[in-house]
Amino acid sequence: MTVDVLSALPRLAQRLGGAEASLASAERLSGGASMETWAFGVEVLGVVRDYILRRRSAPFDPENSRSTSLAAEAALIRAVRAQGAPAPPLAHLCDAHDGLGEAHVTERIAGETLGRRIVTDPRFEAVRPRLARQCGEILAVIHATPPPSEAQLKTADFRVELGRYEDAYRSLGAERPVLELAFRYLKTAAPEPVDPVLLHGDFRNGNLMIAPSTGVAAVLDWELSHIGDPAEDLSWICVNSWRFGRPDMPVGGFGAYADLLAGYEAAGGRPVTLKRLRTWQALGSLKWGVMCLMMYQSWVGGTDASVERPMIGRRVSETEIDLINLMEAGL
């Protein structure tokens, strides 16, 4: 189904703001193969409120997809906000009347999401040293949130994740010695499972709305949420691929491991060792490497014709050098 978002937005504006409301602005922010994000403003009697529309632009397969539905994402946002975690307030879960397919609307939170700017822009200099601890505190709150049953989240531990990505890698027919070595290495290094908790699933610099004055204003993109090992969330933000040129700042390119873990414990999170975090971090690099191969493959197969897809295949070597360094260091 082709949806003309721009022509559906004026109707949505009235649904959000009432009969007096009109669409003040609309801009597509990003669009992958399966998900689109739009920013739009709704004007009511001279006052404009800003919103974000997220909508699925390709058919959704709940059995095989790693993503949750947007309805599940809405339930998650409500659940974590009730516990005090910063997620953008849900304004509307779209239905058939909206003519937008599967979609939801949240309020737009002010701030910056571009990882490189957060890491380098002088506007964030003052708040940067506080971010790693904030991330730890927020993750502790998310992990303590009872998973909303209507979200029907999947469960995965280290071995399940490693196996899933090894299967994906094998199906691609690529021959990458470093990835082969890492799969074997991590099978041996796999940490013992712990009591699983609610995870964000994609907690990294890039999915955080950062305000220059206060730091983390919102955690975005809940679609990869699942039940699993707390160290998975704590480690994903430490994967070197999203340190944006600051490998010396392991947490998102802005902070130290110790601050992240201290914030996590101070906010009630069960202590996680650095070794456990770094083992998960290596799995994170390995997963990102396989994802890059898969995105290249989606171009080969013709499902995504964008120039971005083949080019991302050339990011596999970045994960390979990071994996070698982690294995050399014994993690």
Binding site: P177, P247, E320, I321, I324, N325, L326
Partner: peptide, 21 residues
């Protein structure tokens, strides 16, 4: 050997990539 090979490839793919420690 793997490290040397990957570093050579990285110098083509992403010469400015700052890798882990």
């Amino acid at each position: 050997a793997l490290k040397a090979n990957v570093l050579d490839q990285l110098s083509i793919d992403q010469p400015n990539y700052r890798h882990e420690g």
